[in-house]
Amino acid sequence: MSKQEHDKNNYQIKNSANTVKLRNWTIAWVVTMAIAAFAPKFIWDFNTSLTIIALVVNLGIGFRMLIANRAYLRGLDEMQQKILLEAMALALGIGLVVGLSYELLEDIKLITFQPEIAHLVILMGITYLIAVISGHRKYQ
């Protein structure tokens, strides 16, 4: 099966390369996000120009991460794509429904603290993770 082994290598190499690219862009995005969040206060004392540059760099790398994610998804086979699509749909749905209700809680005085966007991101991340795991189990 030399031809097939060749294909296997191509397929695995392509997926590995896509995964590495996505990982690297994600790390870069997290680092630039941390710089944009903390450096104005701790490094350059809220210098407006530097803060804007940090934000623009963070946004640019964020968009590059999205492109890497699209390439990663396109490189997967159809079943893997289906699992991730279902997980993303669930995470988006949960994020929308729960997020709006969560935001409402403060307006209607059921909670006293300010709802944080980070809580929503964590919820969506956990939902996505659980959905991906259960999706893989479903097709085992």
């Binding site: 082994e5 294909d7 296997k8 290598n9 893997q80 097709y139 085992q140």
Partner: peptide
């Protein structure tokens, strides 16, 4: 399964799911 997966350019898990009838291929 891994050899068939490589020939069809899909993951081994996908071949396993198709063989078990849990996933219908396109």
């Amino acid at each position: 399964q891994a050899q068939l997966a490589s020939a069809l350019e899909v993951s081994r898990q996908t071949i396993n799911a198709i063989e078990k009838g849990k996933f219908d291929p396109s």
